[in-house]
Every structure is written in structure tokens, then in C-alpha cells.
Nucleic acid binder design. Structure first.
Lengths: 122, 122
DNA sequence: TTCATAATTCGACATATTTCGAATAATAGA
DNA sequence: TCTATTATTCGAAATATGTCGAATTATGAA
């Protein structure tokens, strides 16, 4: 994993490291049309105020958190009239899911000899 | 997603939000036996010092970061003689990968009416 | 016992994050 | 234009995090 990839990914995880932001992100994940794969082109959108509903945070805090999610590349935002709509690109979910799929992270011999010899045969 | 789950997950993401910690975690992911699914029972272990190799952080910082990863439930640690070995439980990878699989996050009607009516039909 | 190596704990400091309220901007409608 | 609604920006305060060096612990070997 290059430094660039590491920083990009860690920025995403940082955005998700706050419980409020994770909840916001998860709402966006959950609101896709039931019974279909989330997104494709049917990504549903939620306006800012509705996203924060029930979270008990000030509007300014909500705005800040959504900006962080957006800066990390996790969500999209677009003003439509009085409202600002948020949505989630399915490719982002795919990228993150793939990262934790161990198969995609196998390398051949990068880390030979990482254990001292006396500990390798038991 | 319950509050408990949210906090648990966000703690994991917080642990991965630091580039150094993400690099450490990724090394543990990458060092599995080539050609096999990571883990099952062949999880390979790496001792603390070797994990930090090339990362240019002080031993105390390395120790601190590994403790954070452990506290978040992301890695396992066990002393064997002079060394402390670290490894990764495959189930953790599975859990995280599954979280981003949008299918597993579909709910039926939790978020009806999140967009104001005038914006729902375009 | 004494020494060297591996790793952790502790205390300190600089920096970053979370959160809020007040002020501001953007928009739709009367 | 004036007003109400939606959302953002700004500044400040409290708290958390990342990092290091020094001291300490744990262990194996001479």
C-alpha cells in the first residue's frame, strides 16, 4: 500500500471514527431502496436536516460533520433549492469493503523473517 | 444499528484513522501465507519490533499504537519469551468487510420521508 | 547475578477534534 | 421587499490525540 493510499484510507476511517458521523454515514447506507443493491443509479438522497434528525446535535455541528464526510470522499452533497441533498456513491462502499477482504491484500514475500528465528517453528 | 454497535465500530475506525496504525494493521493483513485465505488457523504472527520496522516512530509510540489497535479489538497480542507477537483474527476482517457490503445494511422503511415532498419526484 | 534486548509505562508538550452559539448566506414564498 | 426556513461559517472553549525521551519491566543468556 503506497503512502498515498494509506493517507487516503486513513482519512476515510478518521471521518467514520466519530459516532455521530458514523451514524450519519450509516443512515445514508440504510436508506437505499429496499430489495435492491444500494445505488447503481437509484441512489437515494437525504437532505441535511433530515439526516441529523434525532441525533441531538446543533445544526452547526451537523454541518461540520457532513463536511468532514464529504472531504474524506465518503458522501456527495448538492444544493437543490433551499435544501442540500446528500448521497453515497456505491463505489465508495465497494472500495472499503474490498480493503478488508484479505484476498486483495495478499503479497508474496514482503514480510519474510518478521519473527525472530527461535519463534518461527512452534 | 444500535448505539453499542455504532460505538464499537467507530472505535475500530478511530484506531485505523491514524496512518501509522493503518500501516501496522495492513502489514498484519499482508503477511498471511501467500495463496491461502488469510487466517483460518494459519494466521501468521509478527513481533512488535518487526512490525514497526521502517515506520520511523519511537518504540514507545509504536507500543502505544499497537495498544490502541488491540483495545479496539482489531489485533491480538501475546508475549512469547522476550518478544510480543501480534496477529489478526480473520473474523475481524470479515466483520468490517461485511459492514460496507450495502446488502447487509438494507432496512425496509426506516427512512421514509427523509426528503421534503417537493424534492422527491425529480 | 549481571548484562543486553524487547517492549511498556509515564509525564510532558504540541497539535487536532468536538461542540456550541452567534452571525451570515441562500433560497422560496407572501 | 420582507419573512421564514435551511444550512454554513466563524470563533471560542473543553477535551482528545500523537509523539517523544526517560525510566521501568520482562525475559533469556553469559
Amino acid at each position: 500500500m503506497s503512502n498515498y493510499e494509506t493517507n487516503n484510507l486513513s482519512a476515510m476511517f478518521k471521518a467514520l471514527s466519530n459516532p455521530h458521523r458514523l451514524a450519519l454515514f450509516h443512515r445514508l447506507m440504510s436508506c437505499c431502496a429496499p430489495g435492491t443493491r444500494c445505488g447503481l443509479e437509484e441512489t437515494s438522497r437525504v437532505c441535511v436536516g433530515a439526516l441529523g434528525d434525532g441525533l441531538e446535535i446543533a445544526p452547526s455541528t451537523l454541518s461540520h460533520h457532513l463536511k468532514e464526510l464529504h472531504r474524506a470522499g465518503l458522501i456527495q452533497m448538492e444544493r437543490r433549492g433551499k435544501f442540500v441533498e446528500c448521497w453515497l456513491e456505491p463505489s465508495v462502499l465497494a472500495e472499503l469493503s474490498a480493503f478488508f477482504k484479505s484476498d486483495s491484500n495478499l503479497r508474496s514475500n514482503d514480510h519474510e523473517q518478521l519473527l525472530p528465528t527461535q519463534n518461527r517453528q512452534d
